[in-house]
Amino acid sequence: MSQPIVQLDGVTKVYRQGSIDVHALRGVDLEIAKGEFTAICGPSGSGKTTTLNLIGALDSPTSGTVRLENEDLGALSRKELSEIRRDRIGFVFQAYNLVPVLTAYENAEMVLWVQGAPPEDRQRKVMELLEDVGLSGLEDRKPSELSGGQQQRVAIARAIASDPAVVLADEPTANVDSETADTLLDLMERLNKNRGVTFVFSTHDPKVMDRARRIVRMVDGSISDDTVKDAVT
């Protein structure tokens, strides 16, 4: 494996629910290298979304370390974590999570304007991305004027616009029909191959697991299996 861009060492996460401690992660060790197309799967409550949240600097571990491009996320301030999320991580959510008052184009360029990128760079990049995800001609539509699949394409364009180190996709196909799920997976697979974008999915969709080249299975907060398909075949 090449130099990992994501490293989890002995990561635990305990949530307090009332007087009960819920152990969401129990000592997870995981490395993800650049260019991977990895699915973290497992039943509900197995810890896959928590793992994604920790990698995405949305949450902090109870113990252990999470490193992104060799940087310990636990040592960073809130502002620095914001910058990490802005510059090095792309997110694709189950519920698309587009800003309803912005057009498809504006949603896709959002991270770029948060970064303060010049308008001409933003325009060039976003138009190219929208074409790449098959949304040419729909730039001016608001999310409410797009289908679920189209909205998720906008979310994918937004996630990769800033050339992040890794794109974290939490159940990206859960809200779309089977055909759309295939199209979205085709798209992400193509972006992975053509642009070298690293994808990490949290999923229990067999379609995603089928396309993933590495499958990390989780049960009760621990990794039960970690299979790299290419190595198997």
């Binding site: 995405g56 949305l58 809130r78 502002k79 914001s82 910058e83 990490i84 999320r85 802005r86 510059d87 997110f91 959510f93 999570n97 800003v99 959002m110 991270v111 948060v114 970064q115 937004r158």
Partner: peptide, 11 residues
Amino acid sequence: LLKALGMSPRH
């Protein structure tokens, strides 16, 4: 979502 995408608290 805006914060998840990297907007700082100040922003």
